[in-house]
Nucleic acid binder design. Structure first.
Lengths: 94, 94
DNA sequence: CTTATATTTCGAAAATTGTAGAAATATCGA
DNA sequence: TCGATATTTCTACAATTTTCGAAATATAAG
């Protein structure tokens, strides 16, 4: 994990809506959560939610799988764990 | 640690220059680092550096102490540790 | 094939962020 | 007091981000 990637992931999680999306996905676990379900829980428009989800995907923090008309989203837990490892190693006294 | 504060801190660290500043300060430890020394290491103008340092201060991640004409900056390690604790507790499977 | 559902892409406006030159402030030393 | 050093504040501009309505795409069901 290099600084550039860690910074990118931190930046994406440094936004209330995206953090809320990520936490919902973590809680949803292996079942994942449909985009529509996320939208129902957080109150944000479809286009806005889609935008944020795609930023999370771009940072490797979220993955999607389609099932028919429904797109399920999943948290990429390893991606966040790598960030935490980076922070502990590089930012907590050296 | 609530989500709002965690998000704020994550957002501030989600910027290359600010992350570099923070890491330099962590490495500097109890001696801290003068603003001028930071500026010498990272290549960025005074006003820009000042701006970023003040954002880190606003998030509680950095503290300053003046000694004569020199302003020393210090990393607030506990602030980051709290963020890490938040991430581990809230974002790594529940 | 037509309609309904799920989600994205397009396009555009408002807000925020990042940047640095110029000027201002703070402190020291002569 | 005057000049030098350290840093900030002011100001303004460019770039990015955030947001969402409208239109487009994808898939399923009838």
């Amino acid at each position: 994990m290099n600084q550039e990637l860690a910074v990118k992931r931190l930046g994406e999680l440094g936004h209330g809506t995206r953090m809320s999306v990520y936490r919902l996905l973590v809680k949803a676990g292996n079942n994942g959560l449909a985009v529509g379900d996320i939208q129902e829980r957080l109150k944000v428009s479809g286009p806005t939610l889609s935008h944020h989800i795609h930023r999370l995907i771009g940072a490797g923090l979220v993955r999607q799988e389609r099932d028919g008309r429904t797109l399920y989203c999943f948290a990429e837990l390893e991606a966040l764990k790598d960030v935490v490892t980076f922070l502990e190693a590089e930012c907590c006294t050296l």
